[in-house]
């Protein structure tokens, strides 16, 4: 009898647990599950290219330094935002972003359409000390990026992991990841021709940080910043289409 009583109480508590999990999960399921069939409705971006290994490394530095805490990369469908920053962001544009970096706070301006807005030298100077370029800025200095050599030996592993979560990197891209990073940061290097071959003619192949002899973290971050909003032209077409 006593045994039975105890078991009943226990079942009571377990039922309670199941009820909480059940009730709480529904909202998430209803909202999130359909998003996994959404590829059917996402605007197509056939011209979309992938991040090069150097740009991906730069993106990881953007994450490492917490730039996302002050900068969004998501232009909303509001007139003032479109006029200030450029065409509003499309879902397709971040389809290969693991994780997304939409951000939640604009202590600094949105960066979704930053690519090609400034010169590499501007970015380098700005990152070394923002107040040299914009006296009112409250952005931190990032001088160490210019000094630290970039770790490139493991970029192949990074690309392979990206492919495993769904980014269509090819075997050749993975095999040549390290060489491509070196090549993209130095057009004089023998490896540089492979970069445009694999990632397209529009890829920026330059000495981003002004120092051709070393691939630094600055090279990677600036390469990434210069490609923001440049991977596909879909957003510009979409906005043009809407205005007609």
């Amino acid at each position: 009898m006593k045994e039975f009583f105890h078991r009943r109480i226990e079942r009571n508590a377990i039922g309670f647990v199941l009820a909480i999990v059940g009730v709480a999960s529904i909202g998430g399921l209803v909202e999130i599950a359909p998003l996994f069939t959404i590829h059917e409705t996402v605007e197509a971006a056939p011209d979309m290219r992938l991040y090069t290994p150097l740009e991906l490394a730069g993106r990881n530095l953007y994450i490492r330094e917490g730039c996302y805490a002050c900068h969004s990369q998501m232009i909303r469908t509001l007139r003032d935002e479109v006029e200030r920053y450029g065409p509003y962001s499309l879902a397709a544009e971040s389809q290969y972003d693991h994780p997304m970096l939409w951000g939640s706070k604009r202590t600094g301006p949105d960066l979704a359409r930053l690519g090609a807005k400034y010169s590499d030298a501007w970015h380098v100077a700005h990152l070394i000390n923002p107040r040299d370029v914009v006296p009112e800025s409250v952005m931190p200095r990032y001088g160490w990026l210019q000094r630290n050599p970039l770790r490139i030996d493991d970029l192949g592993e990074h690309l392979a992991a990206q492919r495993a979560v769904g980014v269509p990197y090819t075997d050749a891209m993975i095999e040549n990841a390290t060489a491509d990073a070196r090549g993209q940061a130095n057009p004089e290097a023998a490896e540089s021709s492979g970069v445009t071959e694999r990632y397209g003619e529009a890829t920026n192949v330059r000495v981003f940080d002004g120092n051709p002899s070393l691939v630094t973290e600055m090279d990677a971050l600036v390469a990434y910043l210069q490609v923001l909003g440049q991977l596909t032209g879909a957003a510009h077409q979409e906005t043009a289409g809407r205005q007609e």
Binding site: L29, V30, E31, A33, P34, T37, I38, E40, T41
Partner: peptide, 10 residues
């Protein structure tokens, strides 16, 4: 299952 029926169900 297409996207719209998932949405409608949800």
């Amino acid at each position: 299952i297409d996207h719209y029926s998932v949405v409608a169900f949800a």
